[in-house]
């Protein structure tokens, strides 16, 4: 499949944190409407990679390009406008604790995109409705469940009209019974054509969603390919071995990704 004009592209990212090489020359790109899933053991560099992709963590070397043009991280204006176009979802939600759900979604619309309060409110309500939380708009984060918080965070990112979304283990901090509601929102996004890079341990869920699995280990991309390919019966892939281990632990039905 051709990916000749990627939306987001990383070339040769290197990052050392506290003397450890966390990213070792990582390159990837993603085309419009594609979903790529990062998997791999903890400490593989998935989270660092995602945060380097929107320059929340500045890489030591390497380049990040949005729609073909390189982002200059030293140019603050350019950096801010780049980040607006790249939505980010964090493992622990990072909602603004002093703002209601509505204001969490609205604040960047007003402060960053300079929308009027009326327009911003309308947009924020629409996004909260999209994630099924229109009736929770007035609640503060402390009064929302984990799943609701993550959905507010998704609404907050969507309101900025991102060209691509980066999701860093969006369900890892959730109680098992709350994971489903967040996965449902992510599935809707994928089906709506949102471009996404998703780090997750929800293998069978993401196998049904991903165009490509990217398996990372020790700061490198070790394997990449379509889930069907990597998880095929008889395939001798690192990805498959890793997924088998996870599903053994979580009791996830691995039949689903052996199809």
């Amino acid at each position: 499949m051709s990916e000749s004009s990627p939306i987001l592209e990383a070339r040769g990212l290197v990052k050392t944190l506290g003397g450890n090489r966390v990213l070792e020359n990582v390159s990837l790109n993603i085309g419009r409407g594609r979903v790529k899933v990062l998997i791999g053991p903890s400490g593989a560099g998935k989270s660092t990679l995602l945060q380097c992709l929107n320059l929340l963590i500045p890489p030591d070397s390497g380049r990040v390009l949005l729609e073909g043009s390189e982002i200059d991280a030293r140019n603050r204006r350019e950096l801010c406008s780049f980040r607006q176009q790249v939505g980010m979802i964090f493992q622990d939600f990072n909602l603004f604790d002093h703002l209601s759900a509505l204001d969490n979604v609205r604040v960047a619309l007003m402060k960053v995109r300079r929308m009027s309060k009326l327009d911003a409110t309308e947009r924020a309500v629409a996004e909260l409705t999209r994630v099924g939380l229109a009736d929770k708009a007035a609640l503060y984060p402390a009064n929302l469940s984990g799943g609701q918080k993550q959905r507010v965070a998704i609404a907050r990112a969507l309101a900025m009209d991102p060209k691509v979304m980066l999701l860093d283990e969006p369900t890892s901090a959730l109680d098992p019974e709350l994971i489903g509601e967040v996965l449902a929102v992510i599935r809707d996004l994928a089906q709506g054509g949102m471009t996404m890079i998703l780090a997750t341990h929800q293998i069978s869920f993401s196998a049904g969603l991903a165009d490509e699995f990217i398996f990372m280990e020790r700061g490198r991309i070790v394997e990449q390919g379509s889930p069907a390919e990597l998880l095929a019966k008889g395939a001798n892939s690192r990805t498959k071995a890793f997924c088998a281990k996870i599903s053994e632990l979580t009791g996830e039905a691995d039949a689903e990704f052996r199809q």
Partner: peptide, 18 residues
């Protein structure tokens, strides 16, 4: 304050000052 909130604000395109 949890450091993640500043990160989230930056990720939304806010300048550090904002």
């Amino acid at each position: 304050l949890p450091a993640g909130q500043l990160k989230a604000a930056r990720a939304l395109g806010m300048s550090d000052r904002q």
